[in-house]
């Protein structure tokens, strides 16, 4: 009986590591291929650079997980433009060189496409876009304390710039993770949109902020923007020194006091006991004498 008891215990002890390692091994074999979500967009930035943007993610029950290390191939009307590997955030942003002569389709737009061929753990994916070229100009003016942003959009043509009309455009300022819309509206018959800029948008400690005029995810033009630095923001107040946060070096007073009392209490008792041990030693020496 004793042998059985020993054997049972031994089996239990040995089975534990195996079981725990086996769990993940089983899961690894059963794991299905990732079906990626590919977001493809176009951006013409403030320096008129044309950028093809790809973001590869996996939609899981706990949220959207970026897919880094995937090779994305970029095409213009079937012509290879280049290829990039997605970064840690799952992004691959390809900047089209000015020297590249982009091919147009019949309606005058640039057809772009991207392909991810797939790999051992990820299914293939791709996307297509058709973009019309557009230029955006932005003018910041201030008259009698009234700040105004004027946007003008035009399409280049052989006969010169043609104003864009009836399309939605907006004024934004950047915040930590996205753009704060200040105002959006429709371009008039002259291709312009004028809007008053509010006085209460926070800037940095000097009041600096960036104003952005932008076509945002436009059906014809994609994302096209102009940025300008100005001092139109309100000055940000510095964080008070006593403010407590996880990254602050200041602990709340109650915590310091509580900890100090507890440590003093405990170490005081330790000291008392050590003194008592010394007393025992002294007493024994005295007794011996």
């Amino acid at each position: 009986m004793r042998k059985i008891y020993f054997r049972q215990t031994l089996i239990l002890l040995l089975a534990l590591p195996g079981a725990l390692s086996h769990n993940s091994a089983c899961l690894a074999q059963d794991a299905p291929k990732i079906s990626p979500y590919l977001l493809f967009s176009y951006l013409k930035d403030t320096d008129s650079r044309k950028i093809l943007q790809v973001r590869m993610t996996n939609i899981t029950p706990t949220g959207e997980v970026p897919l880094p290390g995937r090779k994305i191939v970029f095409y213009n009307n079937g012509m290879l433009l280049g290829e990039l590997i997605t970064d840690a955030g799952g992004n691959a942003n390809y900047t089209i060189s000015d020297s590249v002569q982009l091919s147009r389709s019949e309606d005058g737009s640039w057809p772009f496409s991207v392909v991810f061929e797939g790999d051992s753990i990820t299914d293939q994916a791709g996307g297509e876009l058709s973009i019309l070229d557009v230029n955006v100009e932005m003018k910041l003016s201030e008259e009698e304390g009234q700040k105004t942003v004027t946007l003008y959009a035009s399409v280049p043509s052989a006969d010169g710039p043609v104003p864009v009309t009836g399309e939605e455009i907006g004024v934004y300022v950047p915040r930590m993770f996205s753009l704060l819309p200040v105002s959006t509206g429709v371009l008039d018959e002259n291709g312009t949109f004028r809007v008053k800029f509010p006085d209460n948008i926070p800037g940095d400690s000097l009041g600096n902020l960036t104003v952005i005029g932008r076509f945002n995810d436009n059906y014809f033009y994609g994302n096209v923007e102009k940025r300008e630095e100005t001092v139109w923001g309100t000055k940000a107040e510095s964080v008070p020194a006593v403010y407590r946060s996880l990254w602050s070096t200041l602990a709340p007073k109650w915590m310091v006091v509580t900890l100090a009392i507890m440590l003093l209490g405990v170490w005081g008792h330790y000291t008392l006991v050590i003194i008592n041990l010394i007393r025992i030693r002294k007493d024994s020496l005295k007794t011996r004498e």
Partner: peptide
């Protein structure tokens, strides 16, 4: 970051 299986699931 990654969704590689062995990155998401732990195995000693």
């Amino acid at each position: 970051q990654d969704t590689r299986h062995d990155w998401l699931f732990y195995s000693p």
